[in-house]
Amino acid sequence: MAEAPMTTRHIPDRLQGRSARVLKSWESLLVVVAILIFTVNSFASPYFLDPWNLSDATFNFTEKALIAFAMAMVVISGEIDLSVASIVALTSTAMGYAATQGFDTPALVAVGLATGLACGAINGLLVTRLGLPSIVVTIGTMSLFRGIAFIVLGDQAFTSYPASFAYFGQGYVWWVFSFEFCLFLGFALFYAALLHLTNFGRAVYAIGNNQTAALFSGVRVARVKFTLFLLTGLMSGIAAICLTSRLGSTRPSIALGWELEVVTMVVLGGVSILGGSGTIGGVVLAALIMGMVTFGFGLLNVPGIVMSIFIGLLLISVIALPILYTRLKRRMAH
């Protein structure tokens, strides 16, 4: 790069035209997709636009999205947590067991939160203390946590939850707004603030971009990562409370395969799987899109396993399409 002669120059804070680029961002694309799907759905099915139907539709994504917020931060920091669905299973099992011991609803919630946190702490310690790759650690704990649920339950189920416990998954705060949906909105705001407005969030981006440089710059890398795994465990615990409350029962296979849907949601939301970039806004949009698609399929009576094919295709294509697009553009330019 050629150096200009020595003159003190004023460097502006912001590049010109950045606001124009926002319009071209991944999030704007997601908004367009969301509107499209919304429109298609409302034409495809007369039942779609009913407020209560829409409200029911939110249950398709709220629990997974709660986990996805924390997962987004883990992925931005360059790690991954594949054990989230197993944490949900173990947490649900722990609550189910506590319920059979006669715990009341507040105590069950405490058990749920504590189990989630404990699982997150185990992941966090293995990754930060022993320096193990998170992908293998969480494949291991994925097996371990759900394995414990299987040991406890075998082919049985816990179903004896107190009546008041049903509120978290079935209650409504006001009109069509369910407790879960309000929780989703609240945590969306909380995580958006945490990631985009705080020192902690900045540290997460720095670690994901260049962990060594972040460490040298005084970022407490191990502490931040540990906190992230703790948060993921906590959110999985909260999701488990909602899901268990909604289903009213616990089997060891509960939330099977959710890790895939959560990771898909995060990646669809524009978070780089290699770490370093992504926004909570994108994840919120991705959650809405996936929820509406699932709901739309549901209205068309498409079975669940076919939906999972769709999610698998979606996961690969949201990463592949931008790559193919830039390649095509470059070829056109030549």
């Binding site: 900045r202 971009n209 260049n210 060594t212 440089a213 972040a214 370093g276 970039s277």
Partner: peptide
């Protein structure tokens, strides 16, 4: 490149 700069982040950050 490895220990000093975080090249994917803006100058001010």
């Amino acid at each position: 490149g490895r220990q000093g700069a975080i090249i994917g982040m803006p100058i001010f950050q």
